[in-house]
């Protein structure tokens, strides 16, 4: 039947919602306290996990402090209070480096179910070192680290559960680009065919692209508020996107300035092609040159694809792009058909 693509779009989006919201995050560490330790003293680190099974996996739980040269320090006590909380105690040996230097150590935790996690802690010179006989020493040992099992999304510090937005915020931008390019192509077809229906379709597609762009900007701002701290942080990509959408919005202002439909169609078709070709460098290329950006894939921030090592996210991400695009095309199609009917009724 001729509406198969509409049904496909709806099904893909249903999949994106269900898989996107229900698949859990990988286990990870929410925090370690304290992070600044004093050399030559015993210390107890309070660790909080997320989606971890610390209590059930107590038998296989291991913890170490690992130095830069790979040597480890075993704990004196490992106290698991719940599935997500534990306290691990170490006797830190005196520092071997100069007193002013702050050493960095990795706290490594591992159990067969959750896999392993690492957190950085800092060691400064102790004020008065305890000359305890029970001071542990750095040992050269091989350890067996595990990987977490099961279908799960990467645990990303600061993003946590909002990582799921990857399936909603980002695919909308992809859909916007696809629809915007379609609008430009149809505008080009108008130049060639000079049939007003192509102009109407270009307008419908452009309206959809603009809507998607505005939605993307707003959803991005909401996501930013809870990960970067503010709705608008003048992040390069945010600013370039706003500029790009203003340029794209000019298409509609331009259209409304013409009385004659033929002139309107011709001039706005040309502008449409120009507008979409500014969006690509603004949204995609220029942010990559920015020195600092919180946006993944811009500045020095790595993309989600670097953490999605087992492709769990890609499995939902790509279908979501297709789903959003098909849904947007459906709405644009309805918009076009309405405009066409109105046009026909006015003519008759």
């Amino acid at each position: 039947m001729k509406n198969w693509w509409k049904i496909l779009g709806v099904l893909l989006l249903l999949y994106a919602f269900v898989a996107g919201l229900l698949i859990p995050l990988k286990p990870g560490l929410l925090g370690v306290e304290p992070t600044i330790l004093e050399a030559g003293k015993p210390v107890t680190l309070n660790v909080e996990g997320y989606n971890t099974f610390l209590l059930s996996q107590k038998a296989g739980l291991q913890a170490w402090l690992v130095r830069k040269d790979g040597k480890l320090l075993k704990p004196t006590k490992l106290d698991v209070t719940s599935e997500t909380q534990l306290a691990v105690s170490f006797n830190l040996p005196p520092k071997e480096s100069a007193p002013s230097v702050v050493d960095t150590l990795q706290l490594v935790l591992d159990n067969p179910q959750d896999g392993h996690f690492t957190r950085t802690v800092f060691v400064k010179q102790g004020t008065d070192s305890l000359a305890t006989a029970a001071t542990a020493t750095w040992a050269n040992e091989q350890v067996q680290l595990h990987e977490s099992k099961g279908l799960a999304y990467p645990f990303m510090i600061n993003n946590y559960e909002s990582t799921r937005n990857l399936f909603y915020h980002v695919p909308m931008w992809f859909a916007m680009f696809i629809i915007g390019i379609a609008a430009a192509i149809v505008s080009g077809i108008y130049f060639y065919k000079r049939d007003s229906k192509h102009d109407l379709r270009a307008e419908a597609l452009s309206k959809m692209a603009m809507t998607l762009g505005l939605l993307g900007l707003v959803t991005g701002a909401v996501w930013a508020r809870h990960t970067w701290g503010e709705y608008w942080s003048n992040d390069p990509k945010q600013v370039y996107t706003a500029i790009g959408l203003l340029i794209y919005g000019g298409y509609f202002v331009l259209r409304s300035s013409f009385e004659d439909p033929e002139k309107r169609a011709r001039v706005s078709a040309a502008y449409n092609i120009f507008a979409i070709s500014t969006l690509f460098p603004l949204l995609y290329i220029l942010p990559k040159f920015a020195a600092e950006s919180s946006h993944p894939g811009a500045g020095s921030t790595s993309t989600f694809s670097t953490v999605d090592v087992d492709n769990t996210m890609r499995m939902v991400f790509y279908p979501a792009i297709l789903g959003w695009t098909l849904l947007a095309l459906w709405v644009a199609d309805l918009s076009y058909r309405t405009a066409r009917l109105r046009d026909k009724l006015l003519d008759s």
């Binding site: 997500t84 946590y160 909603y168 915020h169 809507t211 939605l215 707003v218 909401v222 996501w223 809870h226």
Partner: peptide, 27 residues
């Protein structure tokens, strides 16, 4: 009008799950 209605509906749709996620604590 269709486009505006869709935009508003989609917006509320997209914001709703986000507000839920923010309300809960990581613990």
């Amino acid at each position: 009008l269709i486009v505006i209605k869709k935009a508003l509906a989609t917006l509320s749709l997209l914001l709703l799950p986000l507000t839920f996620l923010l309300a809960q604590n990581d613990q």
